[in-house]
Every structure is written in C-alpha cells, then in structure tokens.
Amino acid sequence: MAARQTRPAGEADAIHRRHVVSALVVDRPGTLNRVSGLLRARSFNIESLTVGTTHEPGHSRMTIAIRGDDGHLRQVLAQLERLIEVLDVTDLTGRPHLELELVLVELTPPRGTADKRELEGVLASAGGEILTRDASVWRARLTAAPDAINRALEALRSHGLRRLVRAGAVAMAADSSSDIENGATPE
C-alpha cells in the first residue's frame, strides 16, 4: 500500500530504455483504445502491442513493448492500472521473463548450396523454419527473443530479404511467484 519513492518521477531516474509491460485487461470494445490512448496522451511511442485472449473468458492479455524513462513509465503504468478495463499491469523489465516474437519473411531463393547453408544457419539462430519454397520465392518464419530476431533480420538482408511482417513481442513473467497472476486462475 505504501509507495515510497524518494526520486521525483520522470526527473532524476530518467534511465531511457526499452520496457516490456504485461497487462491483463477486460476483453471489451474500447479497451485497446483506452490503453493506447493513455500512452499516446503521454507521448509514448509504442514499439509493439500485442493482444490476445487468455484462458479466462472475458480477459485478454496485452504485451506492450515501449521505450521510455523509468520514472515516467512507472507513473504511466500506475495510471493504466486505474483504468476500469485494466485488471493488472506488470513491468517485466528487470525481472525474469520469457519474451518471444514471431516474424514472417519473404526471401529470394538462395543461389547455390553455400548460400542455402548460410541462410539455414541464420534461420536456425532465430528459431526459424522455411514454410514455403518455389523457384521465385521462399517464405520462412522466425520465432525468438527480439535480440535474436533483430540479429537474424540484419543477416537476412544479405540473403535476399524482400518483405517481412513482425507480430510484436509476447512476454510472460517467469519468476517463481508468477504462475498465478492477479485473479487469473491457473489452467
């Protein structure tokens, strides 16, 4: 109940970094609007926001990847928490969590075995696999943590990367106490 903060919010602890926030929300029209609107009103640029249903009917889980100062973000998360549609907000940054992202890529088919082997190596580094291949285009998927995804995408630039679609990060707390989260019963 006590919130002890000796640092002035948004001033002294202005560590600017990427945060991954997990929010349990009520699945109703307008919830996404309300959450994204609050972030917009405070000039946060959302890197990615994913939302999907949970095992609890009527509840959705949002994963928000966002860049910002620690102090500002802490204050915004407290404001998010007071939205009627928001049941729980957790900043996963700095605590154990799993984070994955799905990417679909379209590639020019490799020329020669060496090129193909290198490409497969890059895909393997980011949990990838080739999904379709024909003479003119290959399509593949990557599933990995954002860092690995970013490294693989950089490497794919020299392997005929033509198009990509990123799903945005999904994340889950992975410390020992997080198996039952705030009212949501475990499966």
């Binding site: 109940m1 006590a2 919130a3 002890r4 903060q5 000796t6 640092r7 002035p8 919010a9 948004g10 002294a12 102090g71 802490r74 204050q75 407290a78 404001q79 928490e81 007071r82």
Partner: peptide, 18 residues
C-alpha cells in the same frame, strides 16, 4: 487515494495510498 498521483510531480519521502 490514487497511487498514480504519488511521486508524479514532486519528490516524495513518504507516499501513502489511502
């Protein structure tokens, strides 16, 4: 009563949500 107010504008030595 609103936790999001505490520490929003000024440094706070003791914040009490109540």
């Amino acid at each position: 009563v609103d936790r999001s107010e505490i520490g929003k504008n000024v440094r706070t030595d003791l914040g009490i949500v109540a």
